[in-house]
C-alpha cells in the first residue's frame, strides 16, 4: 500500500462521520438539567421533612444513587444514557451506574473475583483521583489559612 500513515489519517477523518455534537449537547443539557432539578426537589422535600443541613446533602446523594442503581439493574439506564451522554454521566448518577453495571456483569464469575474484584473497575480511577484532588485542595486551603 503506497499510502502513508499520515495520509491515511486524513482519509479516515474525512470518511468518518463526526458525532452529532449539537444534538448530544441539547440532550445532555435537558437530561442533566432534569437530574439536577430532581436533586433540588429532593432537597426541598427533605428540608420540609425536617432533616438537618448535612443530613439533607447525604439524603439527596443517596436517593439519586439509589434511583440510578435501580434503573441500571432494570436495564433502562444505558438506554437513557445512549441519548443523554454527559447528562447522565456527569451527575452522581453516572458514578452509580459505573459501579453497578460491572457488578451485574461480573456476577457470573462469583462474588469475590467477580463482583468484589470488578465492581470498581470503571469507578476506581474516579475514587483514586478524586481522593488525590481533595487532599490537594485541602492542602491549598490549609496554606491560605496559615497566611
Amino acid at each position: 500500500m503506497s499510502v502513508t500513515n499520515a495520509e491515511y489519517k486524513k482519509m479516515t477523518e474525512k470518511a468518518s462521520p463526526p458525532s452529532k455534537k449539537i444534538k448530544n449537547c441539547v440532550w445532555a443539557f435537558c437530561v442533566g438539567g432534569f437530574i439536577c432539578s430532581l436533586g433540588q426537589a429532593l432537597r426541598t422535600l427533605f428540608e420540609y421533612l425536617g432533616l438537618s443541613e448535612t443530613e439533607v446533602a447525604a439524603a439527596v446523594s443517596v436517593s439519586l444513587i439509589f434511583i440510578a442503581a435501580v434503573l441500571t439493574g432494570l436495564k433502562v439506564f444505558d438506554k437513557i444514557a445512549r441519548y443523554a451522554g454527559a447528562g447522565t454521566l456527569v451527575p452522581i448518577t453516572g458514578f452509580a451506574n459505573a459501579v453497578v453495571s460491572p457488578a451485574i456483569e461480573f456476577r457470573q464469575e462469583g462474588h469475590i473475583v467477580g463482583i468484589g474484584a470488578r465492581m470498581f473497575g470503571i469507578a476506581g480511577p474516579v475514587i483514586v483521583f478524586g481522593t488525590i484532588a481533595s487532599v490537594l485542595y485541602g492542602l491549598i486551603l490549609w496554606i491560605f489559612r496559615l497566611v
Binding site: 468518518s16 462521520p17 463526526p18 458525532s19 452529532k20 448530544n24 441500571t72 439493574g73 436495564k75 439506564f77 444505558d78 437513557i80 444514557a81 445512549r82 443523554a84 451522554g85 447522565t88 454521566l89 453516572g94 451506574n97 459505573a98 453497578v100 453495571s101 460491572p102 451485574i104 456483569e105 461480573f106 470503571i122
Partner: peptide
C-alpha cells in the same frame, strides 16, 4: 465485556 464496557454501562456509541 472483553473489549469494551459492561453491557449496562451508560456510554454513548460513536457514529463509526
Amino acid at each position: 465485556r472483553q473489549f469494551r464496557f459492561p453491557l449496562e454501562y451508560g456510554g454513548q456509541r460513536t457514529p463509526t
